[in-house]
Design a protein around this nucleic acid. Structure first.
Lengths: 137, 137
DNA sequence: CTTGACCTTCCACCCGCTGGATGGCCTATA
DNA sequence: TATAGGCCATCCAGCGGGTGGAAGGTCAAG
């Protein structure tokens, strides 16, 4: 497999950061094109494929869904794209994140407050359990 | 089914806030005991069961995993519990939430910053795509 | 010639539900 | 009494986004 014209899935995985299994998974669901193959049927990747995988990896790390990553990939490949399309996706994602952060923060504060009021000793009295049993307000 | 001694799953669902399907699911996975049955094999619930379902509902809404809800339920039922056990679960959850919130906030700020620097017009230039292509630093 | 590191496919599992198919039960109305 | 509807039952499949394992092919080194 030490050929000049491409690398196997393992090398593409280590160069891109996307695990082998996940690369095959992305192929299965159609996020990436089916890979070319070597004569022995091993998948073959080139530098361009690795670049695409890195792009996907970063977009996923930023929390874009696979569907959105597909859209971003299409825009990435479209030289005539309007940056407004990219920005729209990004701002929608920021809004989603803001909602999620607000939700988690509210929950976090609720629990932290209950915990603060719980003595945490050998006795059973505990505002946390009481709140779950019958919430105040 | 208009009997004095219990209610069907639909009524338990609407009184507790846990959907019917979810109640059966909780039974399947052993989070709650298998329900008693009416003569016609319909599941039968009483006020105590509804209270348990409400407890579960609230704990889930606070983001505790099903496993943790199981632990909380056991502590809830244990009159001799030490409040320290409950507090430990709660504080572990707060830590998890803090980590998640920090992570989401970092991602949120990254994307918001990229979006701010993107003109969002008809032209293709876009720092968001550029960052995904090859991240700065 | 064997070992071990790759690679292949396929199938099952994780979490926490949710929806659908198919059929039984019960009550009200025509 | 027949039927319509609204419950209920079970079982199976799927969501998102992978991950792990089994069974087997391929290759280079020792």
């Amino acid at each position: 497999m030490r050929v000049a014209d491409g690398m196997t899935i393992g090398e593409a995985a280590s160069r891109s950061g996307v695990p082998r299994k996940t690369i095959r998974f992305y192929e299965d669901i159609g996020l990436i094109e089916p890979a070319k193959r070597f004569a022995n049927r091993y998948r073959r990747y080139d530098g361009h494929d690795v670049q695409t995988l890195r792009f996907i990896h970063r977009a996923r790390n930023l929390g874009f869904s696979i569907g959105e990553v597909g859209e971003l990939l299409a825009l990435y490949r479209d030289r005539r794209r309007a940056s407004s399309d990219v920005k729209r996706l990004a701002l929608a994602h920021v809004e989603r994140l803001d909602r999620k952060i607000a939700e988690l923060t509210a929950v976090r504060n609720t629990i932290a407050d209950l915990a603060r009021r719980c003595r945490g000793d050998h006795r059973p009295e505990c505002p946390i359990i009481e709140e779950l049993e019958a919430p105040a307000k």
